[in-house]
Amino acid sequence: MWDKQVQLLMRDYPYDSVMATVVLDQGYAYLLTAMRHRGERLGLAPSTLVDISVHTVILDTVTYLQLCERFNGGHFLHHVPEVDAKDDGSVLRTADLIDADGWEVDWSLWTDAAKCAPCHPGSDSH
């Protein structure tokens, strides 16, 4: 699954294998953190770059369902996008939580914090 998703990122974006791997790693850290904090209604949000890898993961629906079953208590982490982005600090709060949960954060991928916001504020959806 990992290799296929890295290849998809390289196919669809101007990434080499190193960049695709780093972006995908951050996407998984985001998703697994969101799953770990299910029910807390934190309004987590990825940066624009991390969101690219999140979409790559969730569009691989078979693998994504298995991920949700294994790490989210069998609950599907839905994607409910909002149209308007706002600068509310949620992206950097999300990166801080990912870091606090023990994931290595590549801060360079989280610097566009003003360009994204909770896709579905106050819910467990992405």
Score class of each variant (00 low, 15 high):
96 D>W: 06
112 D>Q: 04
111 T>D: 13
106 D>F: 12
89 G>W: 00
95 A>I: 07
102 G>T: 01
106 D>S: 15
84 D>S: 06
110 W>K: 10
93 R>T: 07
112 D>Y: 00
83 V>D: 02
113 A>G: 15
98 I>P: 11
103 W>Y: 13
101 D>V: 06
97 L>Y: 02
105 V>C: 11
111 T>E: 13
93 R>E: 14
87 D>F: 01
84 D>Y: 00
113 A>W: 02
86 K>S: 13
95 A>R: 01
104 E>M: 08
103 W>Q: 06
90 S>G: 03
86 K>W: 00
92 L>Y: 02
104 E>K: 09
108 S>R: 13
99 D>E: 11
95 A>M: 11
100 A>E: 12
110 W>Y: 05
97 L>K: 07
103 W>L: 05
95 A>C: 12
112 D>P: 11
96 D>Y: 07
94 T>S: 15
93 R>C: 13
104 E>W: 01
108 S>I: 12
87 D>Y: 00
82 E>A: 11
94 T>E: 12
98 I>H: 03
111 T>F: 10
91 V>N: 04
91 V>Y: 01
85 A>K: 05
87 D>E: 03
104 E>L: 12
102 G>S: 05
106 D>E: 13
84 D>I: 08
84 D>K: 07
111 T>H: 11
94 T>G: 14
101 D>R: 06
91 V>T: 04
93 R>V: 08
88 D>W: 00
110 W>E: 08
87 D>M: 04
95 A>V: 09
94 T>A: 14
89 G>H: 02
104 E>G: 05
102 G>C: 05
92 L>E: 09
112 D>I: 03
112 D>F: 00
104 E>Q: 08
99 D>F: 04
82 E>H: 03
100 A>N: 07
85 A>S: 09
97 L>I: 11
105 V>G: 10
83 V>G: 10
83 V>W: 01
100 A>V: 05
100 A>F: 05
103 W>S: 10
99 D>W: 01
100 A>G: 08
109 L>T: 09
82 E>C: 09
104 E>F: 04
90 S>K: 08
101 D>N: 10
105 V>A: 11
98 I>Q: 06
91 V>L: 10
109 L>C: 13
112 D>A: 09
94 T>M: 14
108 S>D: 15
104 E>D: 03
110 W>Q: 11
86 K>P: 03
84 D>W: 00
107 W>D: 14
98 I>M: 15
100 A>I: 04
86 K>Y: 00
109 L>K: 06
84 D>P: 02
108 S>L: 15
99 D>T: 03
110 W>F: 09
96 D>F: 12
91 V>P: 09
88 D>F: 01
112 D>R: 04
98 I>G: 09
84 D>V: 09
107 W>Y: 13
113 A>T: 09
104 E>A: 11
82 E>D: 02
92 L>Q: 12
96 D>K: 14
103 W>E: 02
112 D>V: 04
84 D>E: 01
88 D>Q: 02
103 W>V: 04
86 K>R: 13
107 W>N: 10
90 S>H: 05
112 D>L: 10
113 A>Y: 03
83 V>Q: 07
95 A>W: 01
106 D>C: 15
89 G>Y: 01
104 E>H: 05
97 L>R: 10
94 T>P: 14
109 L>H: 10
87 D>S: 07
103 W>H: 14
82 E>R: 06
111 T>Y: 07
96 D>I: 13
93 R>I: 07
98 I>C: 12
